[in-house]
Amino acid sequence: MDHGIPAANIGETDLVALAETDPEAAREIARLVNLMNRGEESDDECLRLCRLLFDAGSARASEHLLRRNLSFYHGHVLYIELFGTAKQDEFDAAIEAFKSQFEVELILEAENDFLVLTFHTAGSPQRSDAFTLLSSPCTVQFGYIEQDTIQAHVLLYDPDRMVRKADECLLLFFTAGVWEVVNPIGR
């Protein structure tokens, strides 16, 4: 097989408890996790694992596993069937809030993955707060990578440099409808 993820994270799914109510599902989940941990699963097996987790009541684990591997396993149809567009809607709202909060225009550079997008800005009005960096042209990568956190990595736009100074990077989390600095990267 030419692909596979290194491990299947099934979150807090309790296979022992599941085995008491649905031993067949528990065995199949364990088998599929074992395949994924070895990188030997097919696309259908990964999608089956996500479906089984969902059906077993582990919707959070199912959603996160499927979201992080959606493009690789061609799981868009299953994702929409099981989870609808809630995460996409949250992600889109977070990007709109970023534009509004920081008064920046975002120009799409790349669709890196499902719910991972990279934009660039021309800068915003001059700032003197924790977001001063946004006054300059920046690259902003938004990602809904963690289970419940939308983040933005902001870097001073300078395609000729790979290394950044501490004041040329920010990590932001979208919390309660507002973008907040988690910590300046590298500080």
Rank of each mutant, 00 (worst) to 15 (best):
F72K: 15
Q88M: 06
P184K: 06
W179I: 03
L134Q: 04
I95S: 02
C169S: 08
Y79S: 08
G186F: 01
Q151S: 14
M1G: 15
V33F: 00
P6S: 02
H74L: 10
D148F: 00
R27W: 03
L47W: 05
S58R: 12
D129S: 08
G143I: 05
A8Y: 01
S58M: 06
L35Q: 13
E180R: 14
G4T: 10
Q151E: 12
V116Y: 00
L70T: 07
L32I: 06
E41C: 03
P23L: 04
G186T: 02
E40H: 10
F142K: 14
A8R: 06
R187I: 10
F98P: 13
R60S: 10
A94G: 12
V181N: 03
E111T: 13
A25R: 14
E109V: 12
A166G: 13
K99I: 04
A94W: 00
L35N: 08
K99Y: 00
L53E: 06
N34R: 14
P125H: 00
I145M: 09
S135I: 07
I80P: 08
I80M: 08
D22Y: 01
Y73W: 09
F102C: 09
G186W: 00
T13E: 02
G123E: 05
D92T: 11
F173T: 14
H76T: 13
S100T: 15
A59L: 01
V178K: 15
F174W: 06
A130G: 07
A19Y: 12
R161M: 04
T13F: 00
Q101I: 02
R38C: 04
N37R: 06
G39A: 03
H153E: 06
A19C: 06
N69P: 15
R51K: 12
F72H: 12
P6T: 01
I145R: 13
F119W: 02
G177L: 04
S71M: 10
F72T: 14
M162R: 12
A30E: 15
A176S: 14
R48E: 11
L108D: 12
E96R: 12
Q101Y: 09
L115V: 10
T121L: 03
T13I: 10
G75C: 05
G186C: 01
T132R: 12
L133H: 09
R68S: 07
C138S: 10
R51W: 00
L117S: 11
S124A: 15
A17W: 03
H76D: 15
